[in-house]
Amino acid sequence: MIEVQALTKRYGDKVAVDELTFTVKPGQVTGFLGPNGAGKSTTMRMILGLDRPAAGQALVTGRPYREHAAPLTAVGALLEAKSIHKGRTARSHLTSLAQTHGISRARVDEVLGLAGLESVADRRAGGFSLGMGQRLGIAAALLGDPAVIILDEPVNGLDPDGVLWVRNLLHGLAAEGRTVLVSSHLMSEMAVTAENLIIIGRGKLLADTSIDDLIARVGVGTVTVRSPRAAELRDVLTAHGATVTSVEPSTLQVTDLPVEEIGELALGREIVLYELTPRRASLEQAYMELTREAVEYR
């Protein structure tokens, strides 16, 4: 569980994070979304005690991060890829982190295996690709078998295999009852990874919602109706308040009328339907709608 309470960060007179309040619950993947510069990384760094908030606080499993006796078992974090000395091997890098907490070498081998890095474990990290760097960062985050996992843009630089791996890994970690907070600026990735979304823009909370609710909030878009008696149906629907457009003679695009009512009306007139398809507003559209105001042009 992560509790962010009125967290605020200023750089000079610019407010990067503005009284942000939200809770990240265990047992599900929570996506942390926002345009570039929205304050996602800064918020994550404040949760981890790396940046000092101007006001407010963040609690991890009930207390500030720095008060944990075994921080690596409280939170596993990936903040930036390739935060490793170029001359050090993946194994030495993980070993040095593990040693701070007396975590065994066996666990180091285990996370190397989990991240698919066995074959390069003893190569110096200078030659690692961005994707390998991400995998190493995720391996480091898992070292302490933490209850809370915080990953900043973990799929950046990963190939499709890697993206799928991260997605499955996060689902697995959440299913084990862990708290998983993962940031991204891509709605499409979060749509298939997260169950819950925290969306921020310009440091302010825009939405704290489940994916389903977000779609519902933006509302149903259009309904595609195909019928041999389309022209007749069109008049009926229009009479009931719908806005109807048509690209082909037999196909109608209907808005402003629920799909159920379209079906009932067609049945009432005994008009046969070949197709009745609600086209939901895409998450992408919903997200764009929410963040349009907050996108920062720099």
């Binding site: 760094r45 981890l48 005690g49 790396l50 991060y65 720095r66 944990h68 921080p71 690596l72 939170v75 974090a77 903040l79 930036e80 390739k82 935060s83 490793i84 000395h85 170029k86 982190l97 701070t100 907490h101 480091a140």
Partner: peptide
């Protein structure tokens, strides 16, 4: 220079 300090200070927040 490598950003490792963030990992180090996350392991040792004090």
């Amino acid at each position: 220079s490598t950003g490792l300090i963030r990992a180090t200070l996350t392991a040792v927040p004090r």
